[in-house]
Nucleic acid binder design. Sequence first.
DNA 1: TATTGTTATACTCTATAACTATA
DNA 2: TATAGTTATAGAGTATAACAATA
Lengths: 151, 151
Amino acid sequence: MSAPSEDLVIALYRLGLVQRSIARHALAELGSQGFTALAVIQREGHVRVSEVADQLSVDLSVASRQVAALVLAGYVEREPDPDDRRATRLRPTESGTRVLTDSHRRMVATATSALSGWSDEEIAGLASQLERLREDFATVASLPTRQEHAA
Amino acid sequence: MSAPSEDLVIALYRLGLVQRSIARHALAELGSQGFTALAVIQREGHVRVSEVADQLSVDLSVASRQVAALVLAGYVEREPDPDDRRATRLRPTESGTRVLTDSHRRMVATATSALSGWSDEEIAGLASQLERLREDFATVASLPTRQEHAA
DNA sequence: TATTGTTATACTCTATAACTATA
DNA sequence: TATAGTTATAGAGTATAACAATA
């Protein structure tokens, strides 16, 4: 009766519980997207706001707000970009690195506890499938914007 | 270096793109949670608000608001519950069923397009893994509330 | 002109708390 | 007392649009 992709979409929507559960246990000082934004800044080094927006697949204005909140909280610092005076480069402060590490640890602990019945292979397999899913949707999502050209 | 559950958690957070993509393409008249609430009401028959809250794993107040919005939009009707005069029973209107069917169709179309490189088995496998994930997190999420008893 | 970034506004989803009505 | 539900308030996440400064 139901198409397989239908079951998948419903499963995706019902994932809200999982995300809220992790957020509550692990992200005390950081909103979920504040966390991912900080993670991008930590991982990439001195990124620009627009790169954060790209990595998170959100509008630049959203990334701008999240970064502003991180700066206000003292977790991120801005440096002028020597190559482009419109842009700023971002880097985590010591406090930001500490908060990220802490959230990280609690996040993994929460997930590990919930996933006690899973093997490492199963967990890794699911993570890679989700990554593949994201990439495939990113491809589709990027097309409509350019359809005005095509048509 | 990284625990497998860490990769999984990051993949989960990065799923926002997928959910927004589906929402934009498929849920014109319905918010994402309005859609899931309506789907529960359609699927279960004459449910109460509290059952919607349970199915969605959200607070009763959240379900109450979502249901109120669906009623206001003419997608759901309330009937008094003969067995309990505090409660009301919910059922979709014709219009609600139509909207749900439409969103459903567009949703599946969007997903099918993004998942063109996937086999049915892969899609079904991912859906069932996500369902399992949700159940395992639901178990963990329900514990902290009761820890006051234990301790 | 196009791009980088910010700000204002608005909408959705969520939770907590206070409240009403019924069990 | 406890439960079903509603409403008010608040906070996070998101998008669009208008804007400033620089390329």
